[in-house]
Amino acid sequence: MRGFWVRLFFLGPAGVLVLLFFLLPVVLTLFLSLTDLSTVTFSQPRVVGLANYLELLRDPSFPLILKNTLKYVALTLAFNVFMGLFLALSTNLLPDRLGEAFRALWLLPRITASVVYVLIWQGIAATAPYGLLSQVTGVSVNWIQQYPWAAVILANGFVGASFGMLLFSAAIKAIPTELFWAAAVDGAGIKATVRYVVLPLLRWPILFVTTYQTLSLLTSFEYILLLTDGGPGFYTTEVWALYAYHLAFSNYYGNARFGLGAAMAAILVLVGLLVSLLYLRLFNFRHLLEVPRIEVE
């Protein structure tokens, strides 16, 4: 009995917060997706069943949004993983201090507030005579408007690469030095060592980073919102998550359609749940569950 109160006490605060702001919203999102809640119908929403989902399917922009999302996720993921790997490998081949300095530099985008980060991008990509890029290349355009996809992918990539960089770097540092000595004695140069010793040992971290960031990219939209807001023009860079956000919160149509937005979000939530469970399976949940060695409270 006493044990119950002890548990309740420790798990309470986190429990309440998670319940209210995680679990409840999930349920609500699913429920709202079945209504026609909007600013117009706010006080009197009606349950409309799967009408929202049908409307989404029939939306002419829907295929474009889907294509954009896949393009965004695939390309950014590739950049994130490869860049992260490259950064981890190269900074670990340098003398410690130098390597750390570079890693710190590449961590900057992640710790910089998104608004400031986008501000910097806008400043550099501006037209001549202000933008550095325009100055350097001699071509005066707003580079973000001109090449929105490059901008979106690179902007997210510079931030995303640091995630892989840190994880891979930690994994590399964990490799016992003896392994490298053995490889050297066996006659391996740096390239061979990386190929036959380091990379195989990075298989799990690479898999982890890939799955984690796929999920993360599927649902991220903050930088896109700030950089291009889905434009330029009509939905050039609009991804799924951003579309859902727009439907629910923007005033494009003068009427924020929560129900519709919720439907899009609901699909995202379900995808998220599925991938998370898969990923739990993949990463062997059980070994994290060590048995407690005290039985009293």
Partner: peptide
């Protein structure tokens, strides 16, 4: 674990309502 890997941002609409 599941929540950790979860796209929290997609819950904005639900959170708004709560």
């Amino acid at each position: 674990l599941v929540l950790h890997a979860f796209p929290a941002v997609s819950l904005l609409i639900g959170i708004f309502y709560v």
